[in-house]
């Protein structure tokens, strides 16, 4: 399995990278960790004529604390997310999710930007970005623009990313200290995509849910923001009846495919189980102060 031939470019700035993508047109692709693109190239399902390697682009490796938000550069790897003391302290759900992405070797190379940018419905980070209400930073020929994660995904591998545009980072509003969180992922084995997975971030005030956000991985052509399910738990103590209603609301918006991971019915059912588990784990963590 040998990829098709391509010309290789190694820009040193975002402007230079965008300039290359614009000039080289449709047949050019950015290369970050390469762990989605290179397997596709080996299968000749992707045959780009030009690869623009982002490894030398300055400024894309940074995890920056802006107070109310944290911005993470596109080429920060999953391993770097896991090892970040800042994220462990302020956004621990990123570490919890990254630890469930692929395997240790792949996390050495795979990047956050690559995981969120390409629109693969199996990827874990897009649903997490929905849950956290993150914003993607896009740089293109007409300048920069901000696109909420919840507006970015249009279908499997179809996104808001325009011709010549590059996703350079994500900006994440930091939930309050002591928030509860969980990423619950059912998978057949380590390294597999989710059969179903759910991300939950919530806050409790006097034992009752004050805010809640729920999102789902790999149970539709795009990640899903389970807005109605989140609204159901507001004000509750997460009693069994309420959790069951929230899980049912989450299941109702799914449209999973029947594949090697199970039938559509099974994957929908497991979505409910993952939402219930994530809600209970997040609540338990919020009760002990995150």
């Amino acid at each position: 399995m040998i990829p098709g031939p391509f010309a290789y470019y190694r820009p040193s700035s975002v402007a230079e990278a965008v300039g290359l993508l614009v000039r080289l047109g449709d047949e050019a692709r950015p290369l970050a960790g390469g762990h989605s693109l290179i397997p596709m190239m080996k299968l000749r399902m992707a045959t780009p004529e030009h690869l623009v390697d982002l490894a030398g682009v300055a400024g894309l490796k940074e995890i920056r604390d802006n107070g109310a938000t944290i911005t993470i550069g596109a080429t920060v790897t999953q391993a770097e997310l896991i090892n970040s003391e800042l994220l462990l302290r302020r956004l621990p759900i990123l570490r919890e999710t990254a630890l469930q992405v692929a395997d240790p070797q792949i996390r050495s190379k795979g990047t956050l930007g690559g995981n969120v940018a390409n629109g693969d419905p199996g990827n874990d980070m897009p649903a997490l970005m929905h849950c956290l209400n993150a914003t993607y930073l896009l740089e293109g020929p007409a300048g920069s623009r901000l696109v909420p994660a919840r507006d970015y995904y249009q279908g499997a591998y179809f996104t808001a990313l325009g011709q010549g545009e590059l996703l350079t980072g994500v900006s994440i509003p930091v939930p309050p200290l002591g928030h509860g969180y969980a990423y619950e992922k059912l998978k057949r084995k380590i390294g597999d995509y989710a059969t179903a997975a759910a991300a939950v971030v919530l806050t409790l005030v006097d034992g009752r849910v004050a805010t809640a956000s729920i999102a789902l991985t790999n149970v539709a052509a795009t990640p899903l923001f389970a807005e109605a399910a989140g609204a159901i738990v507001l004000g509750s103590t997460l009693d069994a009846a309420t959790v069951k209603r929230a899980a049912a609301a989450a299941k109702a918006i799914t449209d999973p495919a029947t594949d090697g991971r199970g039938t559509a019915e099974y994957r929908r059912e497991m979505t409910g189980v993952m939402v219930s588990r994530a809600l209970m784990k997040a609540a338990a963590r919020a009760r002990i102060g995150g």
């Binding site: 397997p39 240790p104 070797q105 792949i106 190379k109």
Partner: peptide, 9 residues
């Protein structure tokens, strides 16, 4: 770092 070098140029 550990890397699977079949998936890297």
């Amino acid at each position: 770092q550990s890397v699977k070098c079949c998936t890297m140029f």
